[in-house]
Amino acid sequence: MKVVVCVKQIPDPANPGALDPNTHLLVRDDKLILDESDSYGVEMALQLVEAAGGGSVHLVSMAPRSETSGLRTALAMGAEDAVLVSDDALAGSDALSTAKVLAKAVERYSPDLVLAGTESSDGYTGTVPEQVAALLGWPSLGFAKKIDVADGTVTVERQTDAGYDVVSAPTPCLATVTAGVVEPRYPSFKGIMAAKKKPVDEVGLGDLGLEGVGGANSGQATVKVEEAPAREAGEIIEDEGEAHLRIVEFLEGLKAI
């Protein structure tokens, strides 16, 4: 079984960066890391291939400046190789552009299954994976909290508002995994060393034969960035044994009790 995982490389959320006041683009100067949201997809792919008794896990990523640090983490976890799409023209891509790029990259592998995160930590549009599936003409199983593959059929438990649905689709198909579905493994020292030598095929838009994507072709534009009205500063008290009484008083004031 061949699984491709879409992995986004993002600025470390512990150091979120800022919006450039002129271009309205996120300024991300530091090294990029593997989006934690996608570490679940990588782990799930590795487990599914193991359960299937064989196969391979590949990665696709679109990132600026030939960035591979996040990919290396996923390779160290056990993925075999990666296609990285990096092209200056892709700066400022909207979700649809990103999906067009990823779909082309996925096609290079002709996988049985593509996994992605339900939403990325920094962009969180939550639409890229479904758009990738649509571009490929595939079914997609979103918000999976459990995935099984057997006899060319992928079955997932799809999170719903009320509980979950059991949904199946034939391969090839795409699924998105919710955070926490599996426990992502820590790369071993051996894995980290091996990852350094694993192939990352870097391609540009020309290599993918794609036109009409990227920031210059975006169908949406940021017109304003503004401070949201801040909440008024509240009352902060230190508990010295009686603070619960202040809560009771507060609730009484609101006629909640």
Binding site: A133, A134, G137, W138, P139, S140, L141, R158, T160, A162, G163, Y164, D165, V166, V167, S168, A169, P170, C173
Partner: peptide, 15 residues
């Protein structure tokens, strides 16, 4: 919808 529409819900669980 062809292959794109091939996914089917077989059970619905309401918690």
């Amino acid at each position: 919808t062809g292959a794109a529409g091939a996914a089917r819900v077989s059970e619905r669980h309401v918690e």
